[in-house]
């Protein structure tokens, strides 16, 4: 997720202090509840961007003449880096799914009942769905359409996740009957005869 490029984008809008940047970022993502970007991360990122020559920093004297505050601005190479970002597509990260890992590990280890996991997850997603709907309704469509669109996206994804859970629930028995994805073990020497691989549930030790 490119905090780096978002910072470049905000600096392209206008030069800002580190503190102002953080506030602008927060406003953009709809509050620190959604995305709590720590000041340390802002400043490390700014340092790296400065080292790379993508932003330049000038000090101005504060109201009381000190301490001095650092104002960051975009440089021409920074602008080029930003343009590269805009020229690329963005891949969503749906395949890194924590619930999926929970379901699979719970199933192999026998530590969790898959049906229960699905039930718990469904209740959780429903609550998130209602939180998103409530938040969406609190925005004013005349002035805050961007926030509304972001929450529409959240809602759409949550509803899709709920549908996916429904499908998974219906096909759980099929998954249970199939071998689980396992790493390919490269054995030294000749492969043993009649290796069938593993199945779920794992055979009981005799």
């Amino acid at each position: 997720m490119s905090v780096r490029h978002t910072i470049l984008g905000l600096l392209a809008h206008k030069p800002r202090h580190g503190y102002e940047l953080r506030a602008a970022f927060e406003a953009l993502v709809g509050g620190d509840r959604n995305w709590d970007l720590k000041p340390a991360q802002i400043y490390t990122t700014l340092d790296r961007l400065e080292d790379a020559g993508l932003v330049a920093c000038t000090s101005d004297l504060g109201e009381g003449q000190e301490p001095s505050r650092r104002i960051y601005a975009l440089t021409p190479p920074g602008k080029a880096a930003l343009q590269e970002w805009y020229a690329e597509g963005v891949s969503p990260d749906h395949q890194r799914d924590e619930f999926f890992l929970k379901l699979l590990t719970g199933m192999v280890s026998g530590e969790a009942d898959p049906a229960r996991l699905i039930q718990t997850q469904r209740a959780h997603l429903f609550r998130e769905l209602h939180a998103a709907t409530t938040l969406r309704d609190s925005y004013d469509p005349h002035t805050e359409m961007a926030q509304i669109l972001l929450l529409d996206k959240v809602t759409m994804h949550l509803e899709a996740d709920l549908r996916w859970l429904e499908m998974t629930e219906l096909r759980l028995d099929e998954v249970k009957g199939q071998p689980l994805p396992e790493p390919e073990i490269r054995r030294r020497g000749r492969p043993p005869k009649g290796d069938k691989g593993s199945t779920y549930p794992p055979p009981k030790p005799t």
């Binding site: 009942d113 049906a115 529409d152 809602t155 759409m156 509803e159 899709a160 629930e169």
Partner: peptide, 21 residues
């Protein structure tokens, strides 16, 4: 029980959301 609840939901309840997905 969980299993019966799942069965009941599948057979007796349909859900419609905001987005059609």
């Amino acid at each position: 029980k969980d299993d019966d609840l799942t069965k009941l939901r599948r057979q007796k309840i349909g859900f419609v959301f905001q987005f059609y997905n």
